[in-house]
Write a protein that binds this DNA or RNA. Sequence first.
DNA 1: GCCAACGTTGGC
DNA 2: GCCAACGTTGGC
Length: 158
Amino acid sequence: MKHWLVKSEPGEYSIQDFAQEKRAIWDGVRNHLAKRHLMAMQRGDLVLFYHSGAKPPGVVGLARVSQAQIPDPTQFDPNSKYFDPKATPEAPRWITVELEHLETFPRMVPIAELRERFSPQSLILLRRGNRLSVMPVPKEIFGDILRMAGSRYFEHGD
DNA sequence: GCCAACGTTGGC
DNA sequence: GCCAACGTTGGC
């Protein structure tokens, strides 16, 4: 099982929105490296939910991949800002996943705390100028963040 | 408001 | 195909 982090601006789609909907197709990602990460996700993988552009920005919740390898439906929708005229249902260009909400953390972990504890080398999120919206997180760091967030999914002995 | 980083666009 | 200009992301 792999571990991941996805970013969302709370004004666009917040952890509260996600908690209400329970499941969300992670659509609208149009960056090729992020797409590679989405394509590598497998059902059951755990995903940190990060609020970007928030005050302060930070990790706010936990999700699980409920369906892998889904064609992003917005690529076929002419009314969507993510419409891709080159994409067809037979040959989709953008693949994503469905995420299931597991938890809104008892305490959010602000990026400043992540910077205190982890290095930019080990956590892509912290790298200068980082704009990637979907990224892998090392298993040990993932566990540390769950503990810092007071997550009920934190497993002692991880 | 500033700056870093990166993607896209368009002139040549 | 090159590269400057511009737009966007996102932290501070």
